[in-house]
Simulated scan of single mutants.
Amino acid sequence: MNDIIMWLIALWTFVMLGLLIIGGYFMFRKFLKRMPKEDGYSELDWQDLYIERALPLWNEEARKLLNELVTPVPEIFRDVAKERIAGRISKIALDEGADDITLDHIMKGYIIATPKRDHKFMKKKLDELQIDYAPYEDLFQYADDEKQKFSIFEQTEKISSRSK
């Protein structure tokens, strides 16, 4: 009986250690995103600033669409994903001097803010909502992946200079 208890304790130790390592990894990534860059602001500071500035541009229909687009994301990460996508959409709309957030802005921001590994799920969701993403196919190359990380500035500069 003592041997079983000792094995359970050892197993529980490894499980807890693994969970702590995984949690620490995600906390460290968040910490790095909060680190100020050369201009004194972090990537998340800029994201929050763009969202705040573009808040009057968001209509109810755009908010509903954004909420619908992030439903494939696991609920625990959904708020972070929504903020990231909303930050990209807001920056694009502000750069274009838009009066409202349109489907065009949402599509551009949604595509570049979604990591490449999730494009299969994203396309499935867009098909489900009957939204044609063919005009935006060239933007899929600007999405973040594990090898190359784009900042909020690089991505929107690249899409604003793309041929229409």
Rank of each mutant, 00 (worst) to 15 (best):
I106C: 02
E38P: 14
L55P: 04
L8C: 06
M122R: 05
I76A: 08
K120M: 14
A81G: 06
K123H: 06
G18Q: 01
M35E: 11
W46A: 04
D145H: 08
K37H: 14
S151P: 12
A86Y: 00
M107K: 10
R117I: 09
R84V: 11
M107A: 09
E154M: 07
P56E: 00
E96V: 09
M35I: 08
F31N: 09
E52C: 08
E61T: 08
F26D: 07
K158G: 03
E128M: 13
L49D: 12
K33G: 15
R162N: 12
V70W: 02
I9C: 03
E154P: 09
L55E: 03
I106D: 02
R29I: 13
E137F: 10
I101M: 03
E83Y: 10
L8P: 06
H105D: 00
L20Q: 11
E96I: 05
P36M: 04
I112E: 00
E52A: 11
L139V: 01
I89P: 02
F153Q: 09
I4G: 14
W7D: 14
V73W: 03
M27E: 11
I85C: 01
Q141V: 14
I9M: 10
A86F: 00
N67F: 09
E75Y: 10
K91A: 02
E43L: 03
F121E: 15
K108Q: 05
L17P: 08
V70N: 01
S151H: 08
W7R: 15
Y142M: 07
I92N: 10
D3K: 14
I76P: 12
R78F: 05
Q47T: 14
L66N: 03
R88Q: 13
L32F: 07
E52F: 12
K124N: 04
K64D: 05
K125T: 02
Q141L: 13
R88C: 13
D132Q: 04
D95F: 12
L49C: 14
G109P: 03
F28T: 15
Q47V: 09
L103H: 04
H105K: 02
M35N: 06
R29G: 13
D138N: 10
L57R: 07
S161R: 04
D127V: 08
Y110K: 09
L103N: 05
F31E: 06
P74C: 10
M16G: 09
K120H: 12
A134M: 11
L103P: 07
K91P: 01
K125E: 02
F26G: 09
L49E: 13
G87C: 00
K125M: 02
Y41F: 13
I131A: 04
D100I: 07
L69I: 00
F77G: 08
E157H: 14
L57Y: 06
T13V: 11
K33F: 15
I101S: 07
I22D: 06
E83W: 05
T13C: 08
Q130A: 14
K64V: 07
P115E: 07
L11V: 10
L44M: 12
S160K: 14
R84M: 06
F77I: 12
W12F: 15
R88Y: 11
V80G: 15
N67T: 06
K158L: 03
A134F: 08
R63F: 14
F140V: 03
K64Q: 06
T71G: 02
R117D: 05
T102A: 01
G87I: 01
I92Q: 13
P115T: 13
I76Y: 13
